[in-house]
Amino acid sequence: ARSPLPSPVRDPNCDDPDVEQAALAAVQYVNSNHRHGYKYTLNQIDKVRVYQRRPAGEVYSMEIDLLETTCHVLDPTPLENCTVRQLIEHAVEGDCDVSVLKLDNQFVVLNAKCESSPDSAEDVRKVCLDCALLAPLNDTKVLHAVDAALAAFNAQNHTSYFKLLEISRAQLAPLHSSVYVEFVVVPTDCSPKDVADPAVCNLLADQYGFCKATLTEKVGGEDVAASCTVFGTAPVVPGPQPDGVGPTVGPTVAAGRHPV
């Protein structure tokens, strides 16, 4: 049996308006289909080939380059308001192969396969000699820093006991003098005071806190500063902001975000 004739193809320019619309539809699809880590934004369209689809429509087969932003995927901030992670912050890029169907001027993603990879330490060193580098999320210093920061946050918070949901990012300063971590917490139905066994605390659905913390080692001990932004309708009592915390999360920019 004769193989079906390949459908006619066309090779548009990567910056043609319809190609860019297809790429943006793919970015929106990627961001709404992963539950961990950060939102990604379009950086460059590498390749595109358009196939005729029977009985109607066209399929855009593309390779696109993305860059990680500083917004967690659970953060309701619109993507256009999310800052791209800069080279000196140890940027992370995403490479995606996507197929997008264009039918009746609508773009629907048929499939997407993506890989993310951090910039190399050498490249970060080229732009910043003493910047903190990404660390494995299961590094013992990272785990300790998150534990200490969450304990400090719960100690300040007065409404709800928060549990750890995800460690999203960690960086170690040169000589490991300080650890910078970002993690996601979830409020529970326990009050911070009466938590004998956290296992009995139930998570409050659809409410999250995104926290940034820095743990600094010093002679005879360590300092930890944490600040969290709670998304959703969690009851919030604005705790005293620890001074000296790392880049604190900005003021409320979207409904339901409360810096604590």
């Binding site: 320019n13 910056d15 934004t41 590498d46 595109v48 860059l67 940027a91 490249d123």
Partner: peptide, 25 residues
Amino acid sequence: PVIPGPGPAAPAIPLCPGRLRHFKI
């Protein structure tokens, strides 16, 4: 004498990769 016209236009080479919106890693 017939002067030959310009040959068939070379196929337009698609401009890819496209523009860089931020920076290259």
